[in-house]
Nucleic acid binder design. Structure first.
Lengths: 210, 210
DNA sequence: GCCATTCCTAAACAGTTGTTTAGTTCAAGA
DNA sequence: TCTTGAACTAAACAACTGTTTAGGAATGGC
């Protein structure tokens, strides 16, 4: 047996939670898929919530931790380079092969949590998502100067939306024949596209303000 | 009694399905909230799936039908005006006060379906979502000329992402202190912002291609 | 050999869930 | 007045669900 029972449980649970959601997935589903008894799940993970929490930490937490913010943003960078890097960070974390993109189930699980967060997601949100958002907003504020709250929100979502949409709308896009590639080269190229696209948009704002 | 029992069921079900999801919402939850008996739900809607389907059709189908594509796109419009109009369409449908934005529960329900579609969503997808995507892709193709599939996908998601993100990431944004306004004026202003932002980005692509 | 620990299972338990059945109330039409 | 049909309820049903209990291999240390 190349995989331990615990690993088989985790694998099966990840796929089922991602496909059907937490509530619709039963422990017996997971057991049938991984070939273990019902009690073993409780032995290894205490209960259904514990299994889900462990999965979030492992599949999402670890993937994000491999791409920490300081690996992209270094002191002394100008606003343009910082913008480029925060976009690369988002894309590598979300659809990059070392991020969530390696596994389609990871993407679906994360998309569920972003649109309908569960209590188990809270620690991950505070640890990884919130800092990303705040950093992005700060970079954009550097770029466009002082703005009213509503305008800042519009600009921030213009940039962040480009990064997150191919990730959130995975299912819808696939049904329309549009697919996202997850190779390193494709991700870098996508990041560069979003950077260039956003840069023009941001410069346009400066012009119309002046 | 100002509302019929059937209406109270629908109202309670909408809020609960939006908050907790289809599976996590029980018929008894809905009954407790609307003050009716369990059997009455089956009397009016046949079963739980029927109730959900009826709700999707009513809350999302009707809102979308109020903003049909031909009301925005007319023959003879140039590519720039068509781009502006398709953006207005998306925003009015999704966050406008006559669209889903009128009711926070509608937004949450739709966001759930976009990231994790249920079988009940399929007819709405084919009727409303697919035509929107195809129209958007067509407009962008007019704009940027022939492109390889991957590049077209990147450009389309750059525009669509800006429109959909404030909608999909409702929860996450709210937790970070960013709120989306749903008044007509705010929505129109947001649409104009996305149009200008995208226009610059698209012109940039033309330049770098030349 | 014996013991302790880890990994694992079958079976039972108690509560929940969607659905159905049988029957009640009540207003409108003949 | 009688009847018909729509709106509604209480109670029961059968299946499912998360969790626990009691115990069986198997392994490694002493």
């Amino acid at each position: 047996m190349t995989q331990t029972a615990k690993q088989r449980i985790e694998r099966a649970a990840l796929q089922l939670f991602a496909d059907k959601g937490f509530r619709a997935t039963t422990i017996r589903d997971i057991c049938a898929k991984s070939g273990v008894s019902v009690a073993l799940v409780h032995y290894h993970f205490k209960n259904k919530n514990g299994l889900y929490q462990a999965l979030l930490d492992k599949e999402i937490g670890e993937a994000f931790a491999q791409h920490p913010i300081p690996a992209y943003l270094q002191p002394g960078m100008g606003p343009e380079e910082r913008l480029r890097q925060i976009i690369r960070l988002l894309l590598n974390r979300l659809i990059g092969p070392e991020g969530l993109g390696r596994d389609r189930a990871r993407v679906r699980l994360m998309a569920r949590e972003l649109t309908a967060p569960s209590p188990a997601f809270e620690p991950l949100f505070q640890r990884h998502i919130q800092p990303m958002i705040l950093t992005m907003v700060e970079i954009i504020r550097d770029f466009v100067g002082d703005q009213e709250q509503a305008e800042l929100m519009r600009i921030a979502t213009s940039v962040a939306g480009q990064c997150l949409y191919p990730f959130l709308a995975y299912e819808v896009m696939q049904r329309s024949g549009l697919t996202v590639a997850h190779t390193v080269e494709q991700v870098e190229r996508h990041a560069e596209h979003i950077y260039q696209f956003s840069l023009r948009g941001l410069y346009g704002l400066k012009e119309s303000n002046a």
